[in-house]
Design a protein around this nucleic acid. Structure first.
Length: 298
DNA sequence: AACCCGATCAACCGCTACTTC
DNA sequence: GGAAGTAGCGGTTGATCGGGT
């Protein structure tokens, strides 16, 4: 399939938007909704391409945009989600009402990445950097046992997924991976997971079902079929088999091999449980949850 | 005051996924 | 099934600002 230009670039304005342009766009969308972004600029009388209009609307003009600095709780959530989802900014943004993918991306690149680096964590993998002096040790502590269990569960789930994937694809109507993860994330299981680094839920609506949420990013964007990052995929794989045919349910159904979910439940969730991580930082092994553990240091 | 430099963030670009025909 | 059209995502860029010298 050939690449198609998003618009006729001749005579179209680029660069920063003026207040007048903003007003025209907002007025038009309020009256007509955006409809087709491609045709919107012409109909609204804007010398912009549809793509630019969409971006301006979703990143800046939307009425539900939350302006202002990120709260520490939001930052924690971004890091937690990034540890699982990787650079899926839209998927992360879907869990932070009022925040845009662009905003979160900027936050990550300008603040959080550096913060992880300063803590000796690789911002890409959330694993300890070799230069930070973390030595891999035998899994003796509860933490490292969990890591080993995670890996074991992941491998098990991955194998099971490969067996089941053909079944699912042949049966049709299967929801995308993201929905499974987000359901889990928004369920009590996810709640327990988020409690690793407790924060005031009143500041977020992460418990809200993604199925009922209206965001700029559909939840289906969370896990593209050929995900570039394996981090989120691995976690999602571990969740496969649970609740597969009950979209939007807010609890996890029983599953014969839900060891991964059990691990989530089994994970320490109180401050006290996590405190030893701070003391035993050197015992971390590779796992996406390393960064989550480190959150307690924020 | 002038310059430099790093931080920030809005906007653009290129690509992929999805939808329609 | 394949081509064309469209929307959305993530990476990158560039303008702007503020602090330091």
């Amino acid at each position: 399939m050939g690449r198609t230009p998003c618009c006729d670039k001749k005579g179209l304005k680029k660069g920063p938007w003026t207040p007048e342009e903003d007003e025209i766009l907002v007025d038009y969308i309020k009256k007509n909704s955006h409809g087709s972004w491609r045709t919107l600029p012409k109909q609204a009388g804007l010398l912009r391409c549809g793509k630019s209009c969409r971006l301006r609307w979703t990143n800046y003009l939307r009425p539900d945009i939350k302006r202002g600095p990120f709260t520490p709780e939001e930052e924690k959530l971004v890091i937690q989600l990034h540890a699982i989802l990787g650079n899926r900014w839209a998927a992360i943004a879907a869990q932070l009402p009022g925040r845009t993918d662009n905003e979160i991306k900027n936050l990550w690149n300008t603040h959080l990445k550096k913060r992880l680096l300063s803590m000796g964590l690789d911002p890409k993998t959330h694993e300890p950097l070799p230069s930070y002096g973390f030595a891999k040790q035998a899994p003796a502590s509860p933490t490292t046992r969990h890591m080993a269990q995670w890996e074991s569960a992941r491998l098990e789930a991955e194998a099971r997924l490969s067996r089941e994937s053909m079944l699912f694809t042949s049966s049709g109507g299967v929801k995308s991976d993201c929905d499974h993860f987000l359901r889990i994330w928004n369920s009590e299981i996810g709640q327990s997971f988020r409690n690793l680094a407790p924060f005031d839920e009143s500041t977020t609506t992460t418990s809200q079902s993604p199925c009922s949420r209206t965001t700029t990013s559909s939840s289906s964007a969370a896990f593209p079929k050929n995900s570039k990052s394996s981090q989120g995929k691995e976690i999602v794989m571990a969740f496969h088999g649970s609740d597969y045919y009950s979209p939007c349910s807010n609890h996890v159904e029983d599953d014969s091999s839900d060891s991964a979910l059990q691990l989530l439940l089994d994970f320490p969730i109180s401050d006290d449980d996590m405190s030893f991580l701070e003391e035993n930082i050197g015992s971390y092994t590779e796992s996406p949850v390393d960064a989550v553990s480190m959150l307690s240091k924020f």
